[in-house]
Amino acid sequence: MVKSFVEVHRKFKYDGISYNTKQLRTKALDLIKQGHDFEKKTGQFLIDWLNKEDYIIAETSGSTGNPKRIKLQKSAMVNSAITTGLFFNLKSGDKALNCLSSDYIAGKMMLVRAIVLGLEIDCVLPHSKMMFETDKSYDFCAMVPIQVAGSIKEIENIKTIIVGGSKIVPFLLEWIKNCPTKFYETYGMTETVTHVALKPLQSLTQKGEEFFKALPTINFSQDKRNCLIIDAPNLIDAPLVTNDVIELKSNKEFKWLGRFDNVINSGGIKLFPEQIEQRLLTIIKKRIIVCSEPDDKFGEKVILIIETPNIIPKDFLAKIEASNLLYKYEIPKKIYSIDQFVLTSNGKVQRQKTINLALG
């Protein structure tokens, strides 16, 4: 049986100060009344967390569709916090840094982990260039890739960082290899109460791995489309069928290939745009989307959309062909440019809306 979700661990600290349940409610109200915008959001979440309801309302990111509001059971969030604590051996009194908005599940769960596990959490403004005490050591932090990239010289005193929310570009993976911090790429979503699988990234202190590994009590399988099915009884009521095409190694490990709805069928060959994008990002230092247009001969043809105001398509195409990064059938047949990709409120690319805008 999980702990009561209104119980605040006796070793919990928020910005260096200890709080019991009653004191934390008072602190939350103070944040709402007097705090900065990000602190008001934190205060509102704490009020929601400490009320008598057994659920909270969370909003999905909207990166793969329209954002939606869903109910999350607080008991599932407690279970998720405990599972993460076991995986990373987090102990009461360990220090955590929260640099994510409490509007979304990743930021909410940083607070829940601290409350449930008894962590000492410091909360800072969610921004690509974070401002925090760089001479202070932290045991645990969750970031999005743009925050890692914007703070690469300041985060070496953080022992473990989990990274998610968007793709990790190749140059960042190369930098991580020379950092003493342990990094883990996450796989999860709001519906699964943040991550259900983690993948170690190569750094100075650990080897990188190709497959995501399940957290304790979680199992994986596939449907007929080769899409991932998540069985997480402590987090969700029934197995969750996703649209993520995977290579399944075991019921505990998988490799992510791409989204089923993004797969391109060109002349009978199935292409995963996300895999092509990851290779192209080693030579194109801008946001890109690989997708398709109808083609009379092959059914679909690969195209490339680049976030830049001015391009000479033939120059980019020549660069791609000279790189030998792609097979012949993966090379874009047409290149479009767009001034700015369409983003969600938390900075994720809205893929289909961007494609629609680019193709007009």
Results as ranks from 00 to 15, higher is better:
residue 150 G to H: 04
residue 155 I to V: 08
residue 248 L to N: 12
residue 222 Q to M: 10
residue 176 I to E: 07
residue 176 I to L: 09
residue 198 L to F: 02
residue 227 C to Q: 12
residue 219 N to G: 05
residue 225 R to M: 05
residue 158 I to P: 00
residue 214 A to N: 10
residue 146 I to C: 08
residue 247 E to F: 13
residue 228 L to N: 05
residue 145 P to G: 09
residue 193 V to R: 08
residue 200 P to R: 11
residue 248 L to I: 13
residue 157 N to I: 01
residue 221 S to C: 14
residue 252 K to S: 06
residue 217 T to H: 14
residue 174 E to Q: 14
residue 170 P to N: 09
residue 202 Q to D: 12
residue 191 E to C: 13
residue 201 L to V: 02
residue 241 V to W: 09
residue 228 L to M: 15
residue 190 T to N: 04
residue 226 N to Q: 15
residue 251 N to L: 10
residue 185 E to G: 03
residue 180 P to M: 09
residue 193 V to N: 11
residue 239 P to H: 14
residue 180 P to G: 03
residue 248 L to M: 09
residue 210 E to S: 13
residue 216 P to S: 02
residue 162 I to F: 02
residue 176 I to M: 13
residue 183 F to C: 01
residue 189 M to C: 06
residue 255 K to H: 09
residue 147 Q to S: 13
residue 150 G to Q: 07
residue 155 I to G: 06
residue 177 K to W: 04
residue 202 Q to N: 15
residue 169 V to C: 08
residue 200 P to D: 04
residue 233 P to T: 13
residue 204 L to K: 13
residue 206 Q to N: 13
residue 219 N to P: 14
residue 160 T to H: 01
residue 157 N to Y: 02
residue 252 K to G: 05
residue 145 P to Y: 06
residue 153 K to D: 12
residue 214 A to E: 06
residue 160 T to K: 01
residue 222 Q to T: 04
residue 214 A to G: 04
residue 183 F to I: 01
residue 143 M to K: 01
residue 175 W to F: 03
residue 195 H to N: 04
